[in-house]
């Protein structure tokens, strides 16, 4: 039997749509599952109380605070370095070979497994620089891991700023940095912010790099300084789901929901910034 090309196409397209459903449907199933099963676990107490009874009850307050603290310090390091690195690549690098070399390095940095970042952070920051297991060590590790995300999106944002803005500014006698600071960066800001938010969300969700650099198994108090350990949400979820027996599902799912919620809200922010910027763009 000969099948006509039309029929082949029909069969092929159904298979392709099946692939897509198989990829995308689980995403929504996962999120729905977490929301439905985690929702009942969320309460004011859950969000603001210390864990009790070996983490089987009480809240996850220190993990939330720890994550926020850690991510803020991470961004403190990652944003300036990342943005300036992108500025270098887009605005300054004229030596093609060197530029390419840096770009390859960034691609590779982005590809380094997160657990290897953990090892690196342990080796360099915790042990060699004697920071100990601390927010500082964890944040520096996460900052290096987030750099490629920030650099890539900042680069993209910078290259959407018309060349004419730079020429106008320079033609008025502004210096190179003044031009970047006043004519380029403000107009790339939405794109840069998008990258920062995505980097933030990545940092907030990572477990492997913080395992040996900052994460505390159980520490029912808030951090006092940069040199304290903290509990963080992703590691806490790992602990609840594999290390502590007989944890109630709503505590596990609730923790997952808080983490996913945090990350998805950040991503939503990124989407909104991007969309608003596209609408407002005047050139």
């Amino acid at each position: 039997m000969i099948i006509s090309p039309r029929h082949t196409q029909k069969i092929a397209f159904s298979l392709l749509s099946l692939c897509t459903v198989l990829v995308i449907a689980p995403v929504f199933v996962i999120i729905a599952l977490i929301v439905i099963r985690g929702g009942p676990g969320i309460s004011w107490e859950f969000l603001t109380a210390m864990p009790r009874m070996g983490m089987k009850a009480g809240g996850i307050f220190p993990a939330i605070v720890g994550t926020l603290y850690l991510v803020s310090v991470t961004m403190l390091f990652a944003i300036p370095f990342g943005v300036l690195a992108a500025v270098y690549l887009v605005e300054y690098a004229r030596d093609h070979a060197l530029k390419r070399f840096v770009e390859v390095a960034i691609v590779n940095l982005a590809g380094v497994p997160s657990i290897v970042f953990g090892l690196f952070g342990l080796g360099l920051f915790v042990v060699f620089l004697k920071m100990g297991t601390s927010i500082l060590a964890g944040a520096l590790t996460l900052a290096i891991m987030t750099l490629p995300v920030i650099i890539t999106s900042t680069k993209e944002a910078l290259s959407t700023v018309p060349r004419s803005f730079r020429e106008v500014s320079l033609s008025l006698g502004a210096t190179g940095w003044q031009t970047i600071r006043h004519a380029v960066l403000p107009n790339a800001l939405p794109g840069i912010l998008t990258g920062i938010v995505l980097g933030l969300s990545r940092a907030a969700g990572e477990t492997a790099p913080v395992l040996f650099t900052v994460a505390a198994f159980y520490l029912p108090r808030l951090p006092h300084s940069f040199f304290d350990q903290v509990m963080v949400l992703p590691y806490h979820l790992y602990v609840l789901s594999t290390q502590v027996p007989n944890v109630k599902p709503e505590v596990q799912y609730g923790t997952a929901l808080v983490l996913v919620g945090m990350v998805l809200i950040l991503n939503l922010f990124a989407v909104i910034i991007r969309a608003r910027f596209r609408r407002r763009k005047q050139w």
Binding site: L33, Y235, L237
Partner: peptide, 10 residues
């Protein structure tokens, strides 16, 4: 965007 630990848990 979903953290890997969450996917692991699910």
């Amino acid at each position: 965007a979903i953290p890997s630990v969450v996917l692991g848990f699910v």
